[in-house]
Computed example of a mutant assay.
Amino acid sequence: MKTLRKQNLLASLLLGMLAFGTHPAQAEIGHFAPALPNIRDFAVPEPGFYGAMLNYWYSADRLNDSGGNKVTTLTISPGPGPGLTLTPDIKVDIYALSPMFIWVSDYKIFGAKYAAYIAPSFATSTISASLTTLRERGASVSGRSDFGLGDLFVQPLWLGWTRKHFDFAFGYGFYAPIGRYDTETVTLPVVGSFQTEAADNLGYGFWTNQLQTAATWYPWEDKRMAVAVALTYELHGKKRDFDYTPGSNLTFNWGVSQFLPLTSDQKLLMEIGPTGYSSWQVSDDKGSHAKNPNVHDSVHAVGGQLGLTYVPWMLSINFRGMYEYASRDRFQGHSFGLNIAKKF
């Protein structure tokens, strides 16, 4: 029991350093996961009811500072004084599962199809770290959260305009902080007592409003190829139990999707294509707990998608891999996604 408490304490300490007490890096990011959607997911589909199951794995062992360099020291400084400096060796692994329920109506608003969807999330995370002080011996810890409820995404407004060679879309949604979230107090020599996020949190602890616009171009009328782009803007609320409001985020998604028939009757299609994203923090963090509020995080990623669609069943399965690069003030890693979708 003492060992477990020590691991939870150090894992909580690590989370606290990354979120509020570190210099020079912070690691609070937005709700939107740009590696999660398929290339064609930003266009509103034809009227009907759809169900989807999104699986997402993310792994990172590199934390970058505001200059894009790997962090080699972390300083806990929640208040006045010299603080405590550590040399970290960190690995983060996350798995998330999100069922989606999508309804596309037969009604038109401003000439656009009206749709709405809801996407609860469930997740588990593992943080492994070797933390060594500059004066003391180190400690290795591994903290894993139980699989549980994360934050909820609801998009009550999703409009889609369809033309012969184009699809345009606009959506408004929000993330409700219903996922497991708590804080705890950590007491350390030199530093004293300060509040951190709990090690087993699965929720972010703040609301987010999201606006999204998207355009998809089809060079051929049969839509065998799609060139898709999307812009997603996130406006975050105040974090629970802290005087801290994360800065807004802007994310650009892009992708090129090509259907290739695998059977002569074209009932079974393979989908393949490159995809990627870039995400930037576009406004300052606010509040007394914001460290270096004018330092903005950013990350870029590139990868590919491979999938199968069986047309008679309106069933698709897509696999995606993404590699992040040139991240600033946040983790840099890689992700995999496996999405299954069906029209009912």
Rank of each mutant, 00 (worst) to 15 (best):
K6P: 13
S12N: 14
L13A: 13
L18A: 11
A19W: 13
P24D: 02
A25T: 15
A25H: 09
Q26V: 01
A33N: 12
A35M: 14
L36M: 03
R40C: 04
V44D: 10
E46N: 12
G48D: 07
G51M: 11
N55E: 10
N55C: 13
S59R: 08
S59Y: 00
S59G: 05
R62D: 08
R62N: 11
L63I: 05
N64G: 14
N64K: 11
D65F: 05
S66Y: 05
V71Y: 00
P82D: 08
G83F: 06
P88H: 10
I94N: 05
I102Q: 07
I102D: 12
D106N: 12
Y107D: 13
I109A: 12
A112M: 03
Y114W: 11
A119W: 14
F122H: 00
A123V: 01
T124D: 05
T126Y: 08
T126I: 05
T132P: 14
L134D: 15
A139I: 00
D146R: 02
G148H: 07
G150Y: 09
L152Y: 15
L152H: 15
P156A: 04
W158H: 13
R163Q: 03
D167G: 02
F168M: 15
A169V: 09
A169I: 07
F170L: 05
F170H: 06
A176K: 09
G179F: 07
D182C: 01
T185H: 03
T185C: 05
T187C: 08
P189H: 04
V190R: 15
E197H: 14
A199L: 07
N201C: 08
N201V: 06
Y204S: 01
Y204P: 04
T208P: 04
N209G: 03
T213C: 04
M225E: 11
T232I: 15
T232A: 11
E234D: 12
Y244Q: 02
Y244G: 06
P246K: 01
F252Q: 09
G255H: 02
V256P: 00
V256R: 04
Q258F: 12
L260Y: 15
L260N: 14
L262Y: 10
S264M: 13
Q266M: 02
L268D: 08
G273R: 02
G276R: 02
Y277A: 10
S278G: 09
Q281P: 00
S283P: 02
K291P: 10
N292G: 06
N292F: 03
H296Y: 05
H296E: 08
Q305W: 02
Y310W: 04
N318V: 09
R320E: 01
Y323E: 11
E324W: 07
E324K: 01
A326E: 14
D329E: 06
Q332E: 04
H334S: 09
L338M: 13
I340H: 04
A341T: 15
K342Y: 13
